[in-house]
Design a protein around this nucleic acid. Structure first.
Length: 256
DNA sequence: AAACCTGTCAACCGCGGCGTG
DNA sequence: GCACGCCGCGGTTGACAGGTT
């Protein structure tokens, strides 16, 4: 199949967008959405190809785009996600709200790649491959837990011992313990979509039947820029969740 | 002050996936 | 099953700004 090159037609504009063009595109999409990018520029009265409009919208004009420099936490997340996902910029962008794949790609090529190459000359602390002992700080009791085995791909969700109406206070309890736990929360999108809704909180009703209370609630919030899960259950102190993060494998929640 | 170099980032290009007829 | 069209993705380009010589 021979594909006609984009913008081959005479008269279609290329290059940087003007504020006037931006305004036309924003107004049109606000009014009509973008069901068909190809026909959009004609309907909106823009001398651009649909591809150019889509790119301008998704990379620059979308209202949910976060402008400005990347935070250290975002850069840290990009590095870790890139390690895991490779050059799948859109997949990485999906895990960084407000950032576009183009932006992430740029920041990777201009900053992070160089920085990583520099760091290769200095030794890096290796993360545990099998198990190791860690302690978890509980903000409720203000105490460190007893040393416990830490299994890669598994995370302990500890109950903050609050009533079910007191969701907000759940955020005061975390079980993070440094970087070792960060990786746990970079799991497949399907996992997150199952357990929490758009407002970053959710209820999972089909929790393993072996638990005393079938309803477990979660709240997710970024700590140091990394998603951490907060969960509680009225009848149990904590659960262990088994998060299988192997590429292509659906995360599997099991109690153990 | 001018030329050159380097970094940044918006935008483009081409490919592949997917849906549809 | 095939042809076609649309869309999204990743690689690349090129304009521009700021720094250096």
């Amino acid at each position: 199949m021979v594909r006609a090159p984009c913008c081959e037609k005479m008269g279609l504009k290329k290059g940087p967008w003007t504020p006037e063009e931006d305004l036309i595109l924003i107004n049109f999409i606000n009014l009509h959405g973008h069901p068909n990018w190809r026909s959009l520029p004609k309907q909106a009265g823009l001398l651009r190809c649909g591809k150019s409009c889509r790119l301008r919208w998704t990379n620059y004009l979308r209202p949910d785009i976060k402008r400005g420099n990347f935070t250290k936490e975002e850069e840290h997340a990009i590095i870790e996600l890139h390690e895991k996902l490779g050059n799948r910029w859109s997949a990485i962008a999906a895990r960084l709200p407000g950032r576009t794949d183009n932006e992430i790609k740029n920041v990777w090529h201009t900053h992070l790649k160089k920085r990583l190459n520099q760091n290769k000359t200095t030794p890096v602390t290796k993360q545990p491959q099998s198990t190791t002992n860690i302690q978890i700080y509980d903000q409720i009791t203000q105490k460190e837990s007893e040393p416990m085995n830490y299994y890669p791909n598994q995370v302990r969700l500890q109950s903050p011992q609050h009533s079910s109406s007191d969701i907000s206070s759940v955020t005061t309890t975390t079980w993070m313990k440094g970087d070792e736990l960060d990786n746990f929360f970079e799991v497949d999108d399907n996992f997150w979509s199952e357990v929490f809704s758009a407002d970053n909180s959710g209820t999972m009703n089909d929790f393993p039947a072996t638990t005393a209370d079938p309803q477990v609630q979660f709240q997710f919030s970024p700590i140091d820029g990394v998603e951490h899960a907060h969960g509680y259950n009225s009848s149990m102190d904590y659960y262990w969740y088994n998060l299988l993060t192997t590429a292509g494998e659906l995360p599997n929640l099991t109690e153990f």
